[in-house]
């Protein structure tokens, strides 16, 4: 089913948490709400879940108005960062909870629970209690519990943020696979851009209660529309038009002609090639070793520029270097 959000707004007292949000989630789509803390992404998720009222706009699923439908009756699955398992229930009881509430017959519950435990690789843990499981295992149970009721929509509120780095990467793939296999439309909230880029069909970049850009991971990374997106998703050098011209004539397409001429050029560090040169225009300020590469901070015409070099790059603070940029590597973004 298709989730349709139009012109949705929400305030907490004087604070405007969301304004004029439009969003569509397709029948099998994995959508990530990405943004810094306080951008409204969790509020949006909670409104979709029915846990929070909203002030204006519409919220529909498959043509049905959800506005006055309580969370209890929406039939969605939800997973929180804090696992939120029932401490007094076993893994199997936790997973079967939603079905038992729906008064499903015991055999049906058992079958469904068995199936889900297999999907999330927890067959061996059926009779364990939550406190006997690791964080990653607990979150798997939470996901299975949310899926058990065949939800019309799966909502994930920073499900991986409390986990260790390695487990987090493992679970990313797992969640995505399960979601594809079951074909359940999913909205996930995250502040981790890498998570959003690796998992989502569609990334929704949010800032200060509004949506800055919606697009595929490739879109938002390679063609950011605004300064915020360029800066929040990955790292970008942001140059004013005049400075951008100095880098070369065809660094980016033609400067869009709009009422304001203050577009900025966003340029990824990896798109800048550094060459050591005694008469280079840039001075090396700092070199940070990143393992597989080096990030170099330079002073170029009084502007701080970040550029990436391979790990063998022979540059030290104080050295001079020249910059070159492939044609079309930069993107004009709104300030």
């Amino acid at each position: 089913m298709h989730l349709k959000i139009r012109n949705l707004s929400k305030s907490f007292g004087q604070f405007r948490a969301l304004s004029g949000v439009d969003l569509d989630v397709g029948p099998q789509e994995f959508v990530c709400l990405l943004g810094p803390s306080g951008c409204g992404k969790t509020t949006l998720l909670r409104i979709v879940a029915g846990l929070e009222p909203f002030d204006e706009g519409t919220l529909e699923l498959g043509g049905r108005d959800l506005t006055r439908v309580g969370a209890q009756h929406r039939g969605f699955g939800i997973v929180f960062q804090s696992y939120s398992l029932f401490p007094h229930m076993t893994v199997a009881q936790n997973i079967g909870y939603g079905l038992r509430i729906r008064k499903a017959p015991g055999a049906a519950v058992a079958a469904k629970v068995a199936q889900l435990m297999e999907i999330v690789h927890l067959e061996a843990f059926a009779d364990r209690y939550p406190w006997q499981l690791s964080g990653g295992q607990q979150q798997r149970v939470a996901i299975a519990r949310a899926l058990a009721v065949d939800p019309a929509l799966l909502l994930l509120d920073e499900p991986l943020s409390a986990l260790d780095a390695r487990v987090r990467v493992e679970l990313r793939t797992e969640i995505r696979e399960v979601q594809r296999r079951l074909g359940i439309p999913t909205i996930m909230v995250t502040h981790d851009q890498e998570e959003a880029l690796t998992m989502a069909d569609k990334v929704v970049c949010m800032n200060a209660g509004t949506i800055e850009q919606i697009g595929s991971p490739q879109d938002v990374y390679a063609r950011p529309r605004t300064r915020f997106v360029a800066d929040f998703v990955g790292t970008s050098n942001l140059l004013e038009a005049a400075a951008a011209q100095a880098l070369g004539p065809d660094v980016a397409g033609p400067l869009p002609v709009q009422k304001g001429t203050d577009h900025l050029l966003a340029l990824r560090p990896e798109d800048i090639t550094l060459t050591r040169a005694e008469d280079g225009e840039a001075a090396v300020v700092r070199v940070t070793y990143l393992g597989n590469s080096k990030r170099v901070a330079l002073d170029w015409r009084g502007i701080r520029i970040l550029a990436d070099g391979h790990r063998g790059l022979d540059l030290e603070p104080g050295d001079r270097a020249s910059l070159s940029v492939a044609p079309g590597a930069g993107v004009w973004v709104l300030p």
Partner: peptide, 8 residues
Amino acid sequence: ETVTCMGG
């Protein structure tokens, strides 16, 4: 909230 969302 989990209970609510699950239809409880």
